[in-house]
């Protein structure tokens, strides 16, 4: 593999400025051969990743083009999904709404649970069980999401039904969020199952990062007369902020793209409504999985466009997260 060397270790024709010039001197370092090989391997790995992402984006864009041309701006605002009808009507609004709602529900559950679990394992659990708890969490991260989805469908959702019905009966009258004509196949339940899938991986990352909190700073907090909780809020959590965000974003990435849970749980409905406990909803990923089979020409292109939209959103969120994380101390370790 040939790489061009931007630093130009070959002597250049440009005359060097005299060393006493009153301006910062250009610093160069001659790389050894081993360094050069290493750099070539590493940068070609990075380049391959970038290329792959670009190829996927281009592929989606080409596939989505006919649909985007047909729908125009309404692609972002239209809820209905009948791309193969006459005339075709379709847009990602309902899908995006469902994706966001289920992801927000999932993260609202995942982040506190993951942080508390991590703190418990690291700071409160007896040493004897700490290691087994850690491996248990890591093991859960390896359970296929299909298992969680089936468990959610056949156990968790039926088990929660009485509670959800009670909430609807109590608060439904005046709180739009809790209104529902029927419960079970709701965006909330989909988000709940997604949370089960994202909690293990998020916990695993957050626990790892929080365990890196510098011991001597923790001791400093305790030596001032702080409680363990005081030490956690003044040292461990501020230190781990970047890692918590990073781990949560990884979970969010998974939640946004999670297909199985939404496909199995949701009663399909292309609508936008505040009633998250009510049956009916759709997400981009489950929409693609469900509509794919019967899609004709325009339908396929429209699904590509939906995929492109999800791709862009995921990309943007990860980019934002990376910026936040890189500004924090623990960010480097995520």
């Amino acid at each position: 593999m040939q790489t061009t060397d931007p630093q130009g270790s070959v002597p250049s024709d440009v005359p060097e400025p005299p060393p006493h010039a009153d301006e910062p001197r250009k610093l160069e370092a001659r790389l050894t051969d081993a360094d050069r090989v290493y750099r070539a391997v590493v940068s070609s790995g990075a380049a391959a990743t970038l290329l792959l992402i670009t190829l996927i984006g281009v592929f989606l864009l080409i596939g989505a083009w006919p649909a985007l041309k047909e729908a125009g701006f309404s692609f972002l605002t239209e809820k209905v999904w009948t791309p193969d009808g006459q005339p075709p009507r379709f847009g990602v609004a309902a899908m995006m709404f469902g994706t966001f709602v289920s992801a927000v529900v999932a993260m609202a559950i995942t982040v506190p649970v993951a942080v508390c679990t991590s703190l418990f394992i690291n700071e409160y659990a007896p040493r004897a069980v700490r290691r087994s708890l850690t491996s248990l969490v890591d093991l859960m991260a390896a359970i296929p999401s299909l298992i969680f989805a089936i468990w959610g469908l056949f156990f968790l959702v039926p088990a929660l039904a009485p509670i959800e019905d009670w909430v609807v009966a109590q608060f439904g009258g005046w709180l739009p969020l809790a209104e529902a004509s029927a419960t079970g196949g709701s965006l909330f339940n989909a988000g709940l199952i997604v949370a089960c899938m994202t909690i293990p991986i998020t916990t695993s990352i957050i626990r790892e990062v929080l365990a890196q909190a510098p011991r001597h700073e923790c001791e400093g907090a305790l030596a001032l007369g702080g409680t363990r909780w005081g030490m956690i809020t003044s040292v461990v959590l501020p230190f781990g902020k970047g890692g918590i965000i990073g781990g949560s974003m990884l979970g969010l990435g998974r939640a946004l793209g999670e297909t199985l849970a939404a496909t199995l749980i949701l009663s399909i409905a292309f609508e936008i409504k505040p009633r998250i406990l009510e049956n009916g909803g759709i997400t981009v990923a489950s929409g693609i999985a469900i509509e794919f089979r019967d899609a004709k020409e325009m339908g396929l292109s429209a699904l590509m466009a939906a995929g492109l939209a999800l791709f862009i959103v995921t990309f943007a969120i990860n980019f934002l997260a990376a910026m936040v994380v890189s500004r924090s101390r623990s960010g480097a370790s995520t």
Binding site: G225, P238, R329
Partner: peptide
């Protein structure tokens, strides 16, 4: 620990 304070070998302010 409040009444008996401690200064450590390595300075450990909360950075």
């Amino acid at each position: 620990r409040r009444r008996i304070g401690m200064v450590f070998q390595k300075p450990n302010p909360f950075p």
